[in-house]
Computed example of a mutant assay.
Amino acid sequence: MEMPPAHPLIDSVWALPVGLVAIGVIVALITWALKLMQSAIDQQEFSLMLAGCMVCSAAVGLATVMVMALNGIPL
């Protein structure tokens, strides 16, 4: 059975604004993760390091979904 061609989930008119907003959110998440990890080093607190890793993985997941949505890769 042949799969139909994939279509982007977001119209091409909205691709640039949505992409820029998503990139801003991703940069903010990574900045927050780095601040959490720096606090973890300063306070020698392992739970803050784990929190930083979780925030960073959320940023990676958001970037992955953004690329898939804007390029028409099926979710």
Rank of each mutant, 00 (worst) to 15 (best):
Met1Ser: 10
Glu2Arg: 15
Glu2Met: 12
Pro5His: 07
His7Thr: 13
Leu9His: 10
Asp11Cys: 10
Ser12Thr: 12
Ser12Pro: 06
Trp14His: 15
Ala15Tyr: 04
Ala15Gln: 11
Val18Gly: 02
Gly19Pro: 03
Leu20His: 06
Val21Asn: 06
Val21Lys: 06
Ala22Asp: 05
Ile23Ser: 13
Ile23Cys: 09
Ile23Glu: 14
Gly24Cys: 08
Val25Gly: 04
Val25Lys: 01
Val25Ile: 09
Ile26Ala: 03
Ile26Met: 03
Ala28Gly: 15
Ala28Cys: 11
Leu29His: 03
Thr31Pro: 03
Thr31Val: 07
Trp32Ala: 12
Ala33Trp: 00
Lys35Ala: 15
Lys35Arg: 14
Leu36Glu: 03
Leu36Tyr: 01
Gln38Arg: 15
Ala40Pro: 00
Asp42Thr: 11
Asp42Leu: 08
Asp42Tyr: 04
Gln44Gly: 06
Gln44Met: 11
Glu45Ile: 04
Phe46Thr: 15
Ser47Ile: 10
Leu48Glu: 04
Leu48Gly: 05
Leu48Lys: 11
Met49Glu: 13
Met54Tyr: 13
Met54Gln: 15
Val55Gln: 03
Val55Thr: 09
Cys56Ser: 13
Ser57Arg: 03
Ala58His: 04
Ala59Cys: 01
Gly61Arg: 05
Gly61His: 08
Gly61Lys: 07
Leu62Arg: 03
Ala63Asp: 00
Thr64Asp: 09
Thr64Lys: 11
Thr64His: 10
Met66Ser: 08
Met66Leu: 14
Met66Asp: 11
Val67Asp: 04
Val67Asn: 07
Ala69Gly: 06
Asn71Val: 07
Asn71Asp: 10
Ile73Met: 03
Pro74Tyr: 02
Pro74His: 03
Leu75Asn: 07
